[in-house]
């Protein structure tokens, strides 16, 4: 089993809701706090597990905006785990989540150098390295209702651009999204085999044959009949009391 996040760049609108909900949950969660230094000052500096960057692609006037959320990739071949001198960084065998044991972390920052994605963040206040936990304190939390046992970022996303699931199981929504929407990894050259996937921006097109234009799609027919029946009932009520 390898849990992962699938991020649909086609749907992401760059609202930062994933990042803020992540911070909100995790700063009070088991892996918190996500310390802020000078949060209301001129130079706010803080720990975030997830950051959204915005890029402009193409040349004016043919430009596109890409909002790019990036958090720990939970690599299968995690270089950060290999280099940790204390064994504080580890990859869980049962679900593939990469975690840091704060009690063993000495704060040498070596793991953050070894990560090609820059997704580990050092907590200058507590002196330990912090990173995305895939909300491990949510997904196995039996105090939460079943539908809320998902990472905070996934729950917050208003456009449902984030999918959470096991990418080893081909039947999950996550695996299907990777297969059907051409999910790709980040920096495959790095040889880290990241688990998080990104679904590329793409133009959504519907291809219709000419005869399909003259057919009334079933869905519209059903809605229309429903509407008329509803309307008649209401009218009946008013017209013949």
């Amino acid at each position: 089993m390898q849990l992962a996040l699938i991020i649909d760049l086609n749907k992401c609108v760059g609202c930062h809701a994933c990042a803020t909900n992540c911070k909100s949950w995790n700063t009070g969660g088991e892996f918190g706090p996500l310390t802020d230094i000078e949060p209301y000052g001129e130079k706010p500096l803080g720990v975030w597990f997830n950051r959204v960057q915005t890029y402009e692609v193409g040349e004016y006037p043919n430009t596109q905006v890409i909002n790019f959320p990036k958090s720990c990739m939970h690599c299968r071949n995690a270089p950060c785990v290999e280099v940790c001198p204390t064994g504080a960084s580890y990859k869980r065998e049962e679900d593939g989540i990469v975690l840091v044991n704060y009690k063993d972390c000495i704060g040498c920052k070596y793991c953050s150098w070894a990560c090609p994605y820059g997704t580990r963040e050092f907590d200058f206040h507590e002196g330990v390295m912090k990173k995305c936990t895939l909300c491990i304190d949510r997904i196995y939390n039996e105090n939460l209702p079943e539908e809320e046992r998902r990472p905070a970022c996934v729950l917050a996303c208003p456009t449902r651009a984030r999918i959470f699931g096991d990418i080893d199981d081909p039947e999950t929504e996550a695996s299907k999204a990777i297969m059907e929407k051409h999910g790709h990894k980040l920096l495959p050259e790095a040889g880290t085999d990241p688990s998080n996937h990104y679904l590329p921006q793409r133009k959504v097109k519907i291809e219709l044959d000419e005869d399909e234009l003259y057919m009334k799609p079933m869905a519209i027919v059903t809605i229309e009949t429903k509407l008329t029946s509803y309307k008649e009932q209401i009218l009946d009520d008013f017209v013949s009391p």
Partner: peptide
């Protein structure tokens, strides 16, 4: 695409990265 520009780092000030 050859032309990709960073528009926003997502933070108003520096961050760890």
């Amino acid at each position: 695409d050859r032309n990709i520009k960073l528009m926003s780092t997502g933070t108003s000030y520096d961050n760890y990265n």
